[in-house]
Structure formats: C-alpha cells, structure tokens
Amino acid sequence: MSKFIKRFYLFLVYGFLYAPIIVLIIFSFNEGRTRGSWDGFSLIWYKKLFSDKEILSAVYHTFLVASITTVVSTIIGVLGAIGISPYRKKLRAAILGINQIPVLNPDIVMAVGLMVLYRILGLDFGLVTLILAHIAFTVPYVVLSVLPKLKQMPSSLPEAAMDLGATPSQTLTKVIIPYIKPGIFSGALMAFTLSIDDFVISFFTTGNGIETVSTLVFSMARRGINPEINALSAIMFIIVLFLLVLMNLRTEKVT
C-alpha cells in the first residue's frame, strides 16, 4: 500500500513538472493559432520558425553569448581557483565569501549592479555588455566546481612534476589541468547552461535590439505569443534530451 502511495506521489509530481512541456510540444503541432483548442495536426509553425528572422537571430545570439561566456568564464574561473588555492586559509575564505555574493544575491540585484556599473563606465548597452554580464555571473560557479577537485589533489603532485623538471607552466598544463579536468568540465557545463537559461541579467544588460531567446519570449508574452515559439521549445527540448542521453551513455561506458 505504502509503495502504491509512493508511486502515485512520484507520478503526480513528475506529472506537474512535465505537464507544461508536454502541452508545449503538443501545441507546437497544432494547426490553429489559439491556445487550448486543437485544430488539427500540422508542421506549419516549424516551417514558419525557420523563416522568422527575429526568432532565429535570438537563437543565434543566445548561443553566441553562451559560447563566448563559457570559454572566457572557464579560463578566468579555472585560473582563479588555481591561483587562490595556495593562499592561507583565512584569506581564501574571504575571497570565497566575495565569490559567493553573485551566487546568493538575487539575480535582479546583480543585474542592477551591472547596469549601474556600465552607466558609470559609459558603456553602450548591447552585445558587449550582454556578454560581459554573462561572464560576470558565471565565473563564481566555475570557481566553485573546480575548487573541490583542487582540494582533492595532493600538494605533492605538482611538486612531483616540478621535481621531474617541469616548469610551473608545464606543471599547470601537464599535471594540474588534467587532474582537475572533471571539475573544469562540470564548471564549463554549468556556465553554458546558466548563460543559455538566463533571463533577468540579460534583460537588464542588453540593448541595441539584441535579443536572446529569453528576452524575446518575455517581450512576446506581453504582445501575445507566437506558436513558433512552441516549435522552438520542442526542438530545444529534444536536443537537450538527446545530449543528456548521449552524455549518460558516454559516462556509463567510462565507468
């Protein structure tokens, strides 16, 4: 009996979590424009999606920003984590306290801070400010993913490399980075997903007509959503699912 209750409960919650996604996917194949009523199967919104310049440019910007952000944040964050780990405990704790601020601060406060900063620096809002903002809020997550791996690494490992004649930069590339690779990978993945998924910070720091998928959905929601967006979500969901299955298969092979 309790097993039945447990299963039923899990079913209910997962139903709640997946209901909107299922509705989205179903209605992406709806012929009509109205939400809620089914007017027959059609691929019209998929066809329209691929000729809608506004949506395509938002998708392009989303991936452009996420890619640049991932690369730059990962470099800054990994080097930062490596650089702060030899500091004394108290100083390191203080640095990590500051690192924690963007993680804990409400997004809107971070966004407001960036807006004010940009205005004082005299920057024009657009693609550059958007990318800078994404780098700004993803770096701490990279640091947090890499630090535990670094802590796990025995200090004698880089020492062994130097003992064998490796210069500090060779030690970094040949020993430290290969050792912390899983942390770097999960940090990069986190930066990428956070950037793709972000709305609040993008909303405040973009300008000049540069839209990401999130900001576009938000502005569309105000003037009535275009069912092409449903088609876009369905495609994105399938891609994510595909990537996850692929990654799971790969990790299963490794272990």
């Binding site: 025995p154 004698s156 062994a160 130097m162 003992d163 004649g165 030690t171 690779k181």
Partner: peptide, 21 residues
C-alpha cells in the same frame, strides 16, 4: 634555485604518481 632546475629527484611519501597517465 627552483625545484625544476635542481639535479635531484624525490621519491614522495604518498608516491604521487600522476593518476591521469
């Protein structure tokens, strides 16, 4: 003189073999 320029080598207490190699 830094470690990597010294003509000595060390056998570490915990072996310190590189786990990725």
């Amino acid at each position: 003189v830094p470690a990597y320029l010294r003509p000595v080598n060390t056998l570490f207490q915990k072996y310190s073999l590189f786990p990725h190699l």
